[in-house]
Design a protein around this nucleic acid. Structure first.
Lengths: 138, 138
DNA sequence: TACTATTTGAATCATTGTTGCAAAAGTAAT
DNA sequence: ATTACTTTTGCAACAATGATTCAAATAGTA
């Protein structure tokens, strides 16, 4: 059973627009996290700025999350569920391939809880794993 | 007992220049990881490009390491020891303050070993902790 | 259909980062 | 100290990323 794009937008109280539909479609068909330019190259023509704003909106509303991978440019991936306007609940690790540069969500691996040294107040932890992905190992 | 800047450069077979001395001095006196612009603002006038190259050289040679903190701009901190041209040995976590944006090395906390899913070949792991730092909690 | 709020696209600007080349500075040998 | 050689620096030019402002287009609703 597949979640429709329209349902996703509606569930997060976002208007259904052409750009948002297209961007969500790209995310739904992607197996790795996507950077701004990754998404841009899926389009024949889009306004870069609109894309920035769309990504920001999606992140704010809890449809996608930033995949911290240690690279210079931010990448995004779909949230699974339970994320909304008020809080993200993605605590899985992310894998970054040193060869091809792609980033994958490792949904099975949780970032460990950490007790920070005195004075520091911990809000969340992120685990980044680097190495070679399936394609690049072969 | 203090390690001199000259010794540091010599140990990593780097020429002693004015810019490198100044940049190293800044790192030695910093308690948090520094971004390119952080360092730039310590100078009265430097060439931005020279700074980029200096940081790259220092990282390549194992004097500093990139502190992955989930922010958009890379930050760097001094390596403690044991890092050289061929390999970095910094496996400690990094703390990123959501308020002030500063990033600190958590030398006591190690990134956990991880067994990635089939096909993925793990090279290294990084642990990023976010929250509020001492100053911002107070 | 008409009204209102949101979204989009275009222009403009700021920041970050790279590359090529000539001048300057460091290193080593005479 | 002077010379010769290599590395580093500074400058110019360029590319990519990202934010802001404003008017036109579009979505949602009465």
């Amino acid at each position: 059973m597949k979640i429709s794009i329209e349902q996703l937008l509606e569930a997060h109280s976002l208007r259904k627009t052409v750009v948002r539909n297209q961007v969500l479609d790209i995310f739904l068909n992607a197996r790795e996290a996507l950077s701004h330019s990754d998404i841009e190259s899926h389009f024949e023509q889009v306004d870069r700025i609109t894309l920035y704003r769309t990504l920001k909106t999606f992140e704010d509303k809890g449809l996608i999350h930033k995949a911290i991978d240690g690279s210079d440019k931010p990448k995004y991936a779909l949230c699974h569920s339970g994320c909304d306007e008020h809080e993200h609940h993605d605590h899985h690790a992310h894998f970054h391939c040193d060869d091809c540069g792609k980033t994958y969500c490792l949904d099975e691996i949780e970032a460990p809880a950490v007790s920070a040294p005195g004075g520091f107040q911990v809000a969340s932890t992120h685990l980044v794993v680097t190495g070679k992905c399936e394609q690049c190992v072969a």
